[in-house]
Computed example of a mutant assay.
Amino acid sequence: MINPQWLRSFATLAAEGTFTRSAEVLDLTQAAVSQHIKHLENQLGPLLVRHPRRVELTPAGLALLDYHQAMVQADALLAHRLADDPAASGELTLISPGSIGLYLYPKLLDWQQQHPGCHIHYRFAPDTEVLAAVLDNRFELGLVTQKPDSPQVAARLFAEEPLELVLPKGVTVSDWQGLKALGFIDHPDGKAMATRLLARAFPGSPGPAALPCHGFINQISLILEPVARGLGFTVLPRFARQAFPRQEHIQVMPLSAQVTDKLWLIHRAQWPLSKRAQQVLAALGLPLAAHQDAP
């Protein structure tokens, strides 16, 4: 029988690509991870090709990874079949993109305070990582912006989230030249979001590449900070804008055209949601598609 800790270290290394990152994820030393891989290779033969910046799995390594995934699925299914699945205790796991996460996480903490026997495990991640985490049974629930076509995943509409053009409070902008004079605050998805929204709101405009960039920030909770200080405008999903604490310093520019994204709630299709998950979703008052700003 293969040592479960060694197998977990191997699967993490396969996912992360480096010993350094794997040790951080596992909260182990690099030496410990290396030792686990050495034990496995002594037992099973070469599993990795070690490149300077990454590792590559050998055919034996790919077979071992398939074995690990099968074991994870078997363990999760057994837990579902044998557990009492109490609604008021245990861990709820949810993974989502950052914007909706800024909105949901405080609400989930409110729910946890009412149910102290439950623990919230939340991770912010892009769509590809969300889908992989749900398929690998590392998270029970996920939210994605593109509906998966995998038969292993059940998906339902969770929310609709418009993109918003956010200005400093008190600034008046009526045309493209006004935006150009104000300047753009960029972020990792900034140009892509701005391209989609500005193309509809300002037909014929040259797009965000023609705007002066007055700053860049990769932390979603801080993107609106330079906007609030009057340094420029940006384009963000509504939930990210609503989570910004200093609403009195920003404003949403009214636009005649909108771009709205759908958010899909996903989970494994092979078994039902836990009672905890069902209770949380009920408490959130689904669907969120009708969510609007409070008056």
Rank of each mutant, 00 (worst) to 15 (best):
H121I: 05
H121W: 04
Y122N: 06
R123V: 01
A125M: 14
T128E: 04
V130F: 06
V130T: 08
A132G: 13
V134Y: 00
L135R: 15
D136A: 14
N137P: 08
F139L: 12
F139I: 11
F139A: 14
E140R: 03
E140S: 03
G142Q: 07
G142F: 01
G142Y: 04
L143D: 10
L143K: 02
V144S: 06
Q146C: 15
P148I: 12
P148A: 11
S150I: 08
P151Q: 10
P151C: 10
P151E: 15
Q152P: 08
V153I: 15
L157C: 11
E160P: 06
L163P: 02
L165N: 10
L165T: 15
V166K: 01
K169Y: 05
V173A: 13
S174I: 11
S174H: 14
D175S: 03
D175W: 08
W176N: 01
G178F: 00
L182Q: 14
G183E: 03
F184P: 12
I185D: 00
I185M: 05
H187C: 13
P188G: 11
D189I: 02
G190H: 00
K191P: 01
M193Y: 00
A194D: 04
A194Q: 12
R196Y: 01
L198A: 10
L198V: 15
L198P: 01
A199R: 11
A199K: 02
A201Y: 09
F202M: 11
P203F: 05
G204P: 10
S205P: 07
S205Y: 06
P206S: 12
P206M: 10
G207N: 12
P208S: 10
P208A: 13
P208F: 09
A209Y: 02
H214S: 13
H214D: 05
G215E: 06
F216A: 13
F216M: 08
N218A: 15
N218K: 11
Q219M: 14
I223W: 02
I223T: 08
L224I: 03
E225F: 11
P226R: 07
A228Q: 03
A228I: 05
G230T: 06
L231Y: 12
L231K: 10
G232M: 12
G232W: 06
G232F: 07
F233H: 05
T234A: 12
T234C: 10
T234H: 02
P237H: 05
A240D: 01
A243Q: 13
F244Q: 11
F244M: 02
F244E: 04
P245H: 01
E248Q: 14
E248D: 14
E248V: 08
H249A: 14
H249I: 06
H249Q: 14
I250W: 01
